[in-house]
Amino acid sequence: MSDKHSVIIENLNKTFYPLTKSVTMGEKFLQIFNPRKRSKVAALSDINIQIEKGEFLGIIGKNGSGKSTLLKIIIGAIKADKGSKVITNGKIVRLALGMGFDKNLSARDNIYVNGAILGLSFRRIGQLFDEIINFAELRDFVDTPIKFYSNGMRSRLAFSIAMNAEADIYLFDEFFGGVGDLSFRKKSDELFKKMIQNNKTIIHVSHNLQDIKKYSSRVIMLHKGKTITQGHPDEVVPIYKTYN
């Protein structure tokens, strides 16, 4: 992979084999003698994407088009089918609403757990700690278990940790627009601009076409697991609208 790219995806296919009913050991045993035909769902078919470093890529598509599956494959949580090629270059973090926390732990513990998993040393997390808490506006709730937080507080904390994570590739899964009140969104906006300036790669999955148009330099439209079109937001968004 060249230094120019953050993500290269070639011939990506992903098939799910959903189970129609629960699988018990008894059923498994009977299946040895009478194999049951399993249903197949092609979540992604023949996806080819090259994402450059510092690029802000928007991905749009209706529900079930394969957007979140694509992000999960990029981060490595889901394995693509054989023959698919997914190469990433750099530390990746994914942001989705309600994600990323152990609800029984405090913000302090969650910051250390997430930070440590993101590869930050304890010393570095210690240095960033105040910044994370202050940015998330949670100074008075540092040692309160996350389960007592509102959705907004959780989102702000997740956003603040991720922004300070020093990752190279950020995956925003329907996360971008709905975080916090107006002043927080203003702060977030400034941070995004800074990230773009700092050559961070952002892949942004959303239904919010305003955000997509505002930030993305390129947009990919998925439909039923296939790439329909890609290009400048002004070209792709009108096509997407015809699919709704």
Binding site: I75, G76, K91, R94, G100, N114, G119
Partner: peptide, 12 residues
Amino acid sequence: IQKKYLIENIQF
């Protein structure tokens, strides 16, 4: 199961 929240969101 319990750490799926980390697996799905951070690469490690």
